[in-house]
Design a binder for these strands. Structure first.
Lengths: 211, 211, 211, 211
DNA sequence: CATGAATGAGTGTTCATTCAT
DNA sequence: CATGAATGAACACTCATTCAT
């Protein structure tokens, strides 16, 4: 994906290279947040980063790589946090709730960026040109597989309903979770984090009907 | 929006005109389904419709009008069906379930088109250029307002939980509903309609936890 | 140039045809005055005339014919008036001054249209596509030839300077005359007709130096 | 107007850039002379210059800038020469005659280009879209204001007629001058420069009547 | 490492013109 | 006679990408 500097490059150069990549990705992210996912041009990104468009091609193969790098960055960061939080919980239900807490926090801290991550994690290729970066997607797939396990445990413990397979529950849980976060990321005056967690968990856990 | 033929046109011409508009919108829809929402070109649509690009400009002011017409068409059609189904039910909960049934049916019958309607109904303008057709969006807004009333009644009847305002319930209900339908519209071998309804209603009504 | 109706057409039809042509030419003129010579489209003209663009092609071969007809109309009208005025004067100098008077009057009465006539009478083909209608131009040529005779007589009578050939004097007289009228046609608050005549004649007859 | 290369560009690049701009302007001029002011396309210019159409957009914002640059170039060049010649003369009449000499020479040396300059200096906006480059026009305005002063001096010295205001004389002098030069620029076998000066000055100074 | 310059392929859109009805 | 519909050819302009310097 992202171009690597020459093999014989010193460690110093490697570091410099990585730093530049980070700068460029950040610039691209800023532009994408400002202009929307689909109307970003290489000129825009270069202008934001303060370099010439041609420079981008030293660090990335093509436009796709630049855009993908954004999703990859946030995906990685988010999943690291989520896994850390899950590791601190023992039982399955608590793990799911921890996931929710971290994602709410992340979505609130990186409002617009979250939409990008969401697009990466949930977007389906509609046409040929619109597909999603492979590696970020793979990371999500792996994470979801782990969640299925968590859910299976919670079912075994009697915490989750048993009339759906863990795969189905995982699928719907993640769809609903991401959708609701997305929705919240667009609200002008969203409630506090704890309240957000309460509302979302309320619906996910208990549905809309009176218990 | 869509260009109207001259007032003095005969009824015959009017009909011909409308028919052509439908043909062109269908072509545009086909292309959009194939290539994705954002990479549609007027040349593509014309090629799909079997006419010259210039012909499109007889029936639409510009590209926006063409794209908007698609969302408008399906939105209108879907809401007509939903309202009809709701009118046949008496109590609030049954109305919501009727909505679900119609939407599941529509989403399955117009799989890819549903994604377009969904984009119209839920999409938020991220950048300046990407906004959503005004009137289709208005139709959704109006429909959602009606739903809030339905939900209020169901709450009064003790069918829906009372610890959230009807507005919040409506918001989350519609987000979850549309997201799940969207998810299903991407599955390769989706279950039967009745089963889809059962699953979705299961999660929306009761959540993921053991009752 | 302008299309003729079928040979077997009755006189009635002929008249109707001519009347329509006049209407269309007038519409074209109005548009040209409003939008400038070069940005006139057939759609514009048709809209102004209240007919469909295709209708224009019943009365004119192509766009050129429409535009030419405007110049031709005013050229003919102007030259008729000029010749009438000249015929009422006996000596050469008086004939020239009569020409000036008529042209000033015409230019003031048809301010913007005059620029079109001027373009026809004086414009030189700069490129291949910009040439000038042949017949209107021929009418001007014929008129200028007559003027040369008038000038020759005035020279013989000692009224005009003899150190230039009549052809040269005619050429410069007409260039200057038309340029000054053109200039006046752009002034916001032009002086009265008589004053205009006085000024222009003052410069043309006596030059800028103290007599 | 013309795009400037980045500030940090070296002097070398700056020079290269300017040279290219000159080449492109020259190409545009050639095309304009060949095809006329209004039917120039970017493709034509690019073809004449031997580059791709997109290249033009590196050096100019849009078509207007290219066309304007031509008028600006010649206007500047001509006015420099005129002012230099005027500075060498002491009295007002001699200054005007010097202006005439320089303009005759320039018009003969840059026949077709002169028509462009003329269009810039005298053209009036007929429609909204056809207006004239602002800065070239301003340069003419400034020059004309200076001429008014020159004429006022010549009037005070008794060299020019006093029955018209200097503004009126300037206006008519410049209109007539430019018109006659324009006329000469179209003649197939124009007389020598000195003869042209003699003829034009003859008419401007003394008019067509016998002194 | 960085970039100014260059460009092919494409974008939405317009327009004079034709023709079946 | 009139016109709605249709279109080929063109236009100004953009963009991701390459490459010599």
């Amino acid at each position: 994906m992202v171009k690597k500097p020459n093999a014989r490059s010193s460690d110093f150069h490697q570091r410099r290279h990585d730093a530049t990549v980070q700068t460029l990705v950040a610039a691209a992210e800023a532009v994408m947040v400002r202009q929307g996912y689909h109307s970003v041009t290489m000129r825009d990104i270069a202008a934001e980063a303060g370099c010439a468009p041609a420079t981008l091609y030293i660090y990335f193969e093509n436009k796709r790589e630049v855009v993908d790098a954004i999703g990859a960055r946030h995906t990685r960061e988010l999943l690291v946090q989520v896994r850390a939080a899950m590791a601190m919980e023992a039982d399955g239900l608590a793990k799911l709730k921890a996931t929710l807490r971290v994602m709410v926090a992340y979505a609130n801290g990186n409002r617009s960026a979250f939409r990008i991550v969401r697009a990466v994690g949930r977007a389906r290729p509609v046409g040929l040109r619109d597909s999603v970066p492979a590696d970020a997607r793979d990371e999500w797939q792996a994470f979801w597989a782990e969640e299925v396990e968590t859910i299976r445990q919670a079912q075994a413990a009697g915490a989750l309903r048993g009339d759906f397979t863990p795969e189905v529950i995982q699928q719907f849980w993640s769809v609903i979770l991401v959708s609701l976060l997305d929705e919240l990321s667009y609200q002008d005056n969203p409630p506090e984090l704890a309240e957000q967690v309460r509302i979302i968990w309320g619906f996910i856990a208990g549905g809309i009907c009176r218990g």
